[in-house]
Nucleic acid binder design. Structure first.
Lengths: 301, 301
DNA sequence: AAACTCTATTGTCTTAATAGCAATAAATGG
DNA sequence: CCATTTATTGCTATTAAGACAATAGAGTTT
């Protein structure tokens, strides 16, 4: 018995809810679907579907089996795909999902070079701060702050993503230079809003992490606007160093340094990570992109 | 192409190092192994093995593919095993639907023991006098008064469910003991209301079934309340013997016996039945529960 | 209530895939 | 150099799956 075929029929039927719809998808008669699944059930010694003459429904075992088997099928497909694409020149569509800020400032600029280097790779870049799933054929490469530990996902740290406080000279002249992190509370705050919520300012004062956020003047998920407002002297903001560095260089903003540690989280590990599936690395386009991005970004950052 | 078989051949060959050894393991000619793997390679568009006339060795892709695929095969085996195990050890969720009265008095008490006996079975008991469908994965076991004849449903009679008339001494002192069933009409009636309607009293007098119902004082679908009112002397009620027996024992109620047959239906067959689906592959959880319930209830009832 | 449609199943035939077997050619080991 | 092992190839037999038609049950519409 071709169990693999039976499994494909089974998953399709479970999704469709009846045999005939599944049969159409595979362009075979419904009787074939019925027979293959009956065979599968016989070989397992278990009833996977309860049938009426009008429709089919999963049994409890059927539901369990389906869920597990779907993962197996997906993985096998991945394996086949990896082999098929191996030993070929980088081609095809490469989907990259990145955080908005990083994408605009770091990724897009270097991808021009990548595109000329690998002209056969069609780039599809999605900038979003929402999470997107790897593996589900959703994206090939994801760039995120922090990473969820997963066996099949490789995480490469691109940069440390250290948040620093900054304000314009204009503002500092008006409001005065804060001497310590606890002074921040009497200033005006410009806040970056991530999908996980706003990013209050934390400082470790005498071994204790404390919220030292200034009253909010503006909260937005648009980094560029936030920076512009800071330059115009609206208040103090905290952003990753790699965002602010160009403005420091142009003297548009001044970095505020303190004796006490200052961060946007009590957890220090908020580096920028590039994530990709371990399996996918076998495909040339992914391998090329992963190697390219990590070389370029690490060289800069 | 049966990819699964090809993969099994491939992994065996890779482990053995040559086709003939793998062929022996599957008891097929070496030519079959050779052909299946060649097909697999063709479908993948990649060479997995380098062959000499004396032995075979993995290529770079082959090694990668082997490693990934071995995991997939193991997982699939795991899935199959899980299903087969499900068919041998009682596990999973067991849904039982029962009539309210029977459920409260007979079923729930014995299910404690069942739960300790089969700890892997998650019980889900629904007490309702409404009909519920077997088969649609709605319930695994249904307990009902009477049964609809259906080819795919097995019905086991648990008890005879004989209805008997009763009243308290208090009432009988006041109203007098009815000498025959036809006397009942001048008494006060407490009626049990099933989803099928009220339950008038029928008696077979001189070969003729007649309605001998007393005027109704109370009609309810709540058996416990009905019994309490009877004990308090409100009137005469008819309930299954297994409901009333404890009250007879405690002298709270007296059974009324007559020369003429008395019932709540002209059809005598109103036993309590346990119903379950007749499936090609019976699940252990259902079998265990059916056996357990019929043993315990028949022993008592 | 009756006609209709959609759906799963079953039987039979056809077609495609696989196993079995024998022959051949290449490589290894003595 | 010969004997042996091993992969491959051609051919046949066998088995499994698909195609098609017919049947029966379950909703749906009229």
């Amino acid at each position: 018995m071709d169990q693999l075929r039976a499994l494909k029929y089974f998953t399709a039927t479970a999704e469709a809810g009846n045999f005939s719809a599944a049969a159409k998808r595979f362009e075979v008669p419904a009787s074939s679907i019925s027979r293959r699944i009956a065979d599968l059930e016989a070989s397992l010694g278990a009833q996977l579907l309860t049938r009426t003459t009008r429709s089919v429904a999963l049994t409890e075992v059927g539901r369990q089996y389906l869920q597990q088997v779907k993962g197996v099928l997906a993985q096998l497909e991945q394996c086949n795909k990896a082999v098929r694409e191996y030993q070929t020149i980088p081609t095809g569509t490469l989907k990259i999902s990145s955080m908005v800020g990083f994408g605009e400032r770091m990724l897009i600029p270097i991808l021009d070079e990548f595109a000329t280097l690998y002209p056969d790779v069609l780039l599809e870049v999605v900038l979003s701060d929402e999470l997107s799933k790897l593996g589900r054929d959703d994206v090939d490469i994801a760039i995120r702050g922090g990473f969820a530990p997963d066996e099949r996902v490789v995480a490469i740290q691109l940069m440390d993503n250290q948040f620093v406080a900054a304000a314009s000279a204009l503002y500092l002249n008006k409001a005065g230079m804060p001497a310590s992190t606890s002074d921040l509370k009497s200033h005006r705050g410009l806040y970056f809003k991530t999908p996980m919520g706003a990013t209050p300012w934390w400082s470790e004062i005498q071994g204790q992490w404390q919220d030292v956020s200034a009253p909010s003047i503006l909260t937005t998920n648009n980094g560029k606007w936030l920076v512009r407002k800071a330059i115009e002297g609206w208040g103090i903001l905290m952003m990753p160093r790699w965002v602010l560095q160009p403005h420091f260089d142009k003297d548009e903003l001044q970095e505020l340094t303190f004796a006490e540690p200052l961060s946007i989280t009590q957890n220090q590990d908020l580096g920028v990570y590039m994530l990709y599936q371990k399996l996918a690395y076998a495909t040339p386009k992914v391998k090329a992109a992963v190697d390219f991005i990590s070389a370029r970004v690490k060289g800069r950052g």
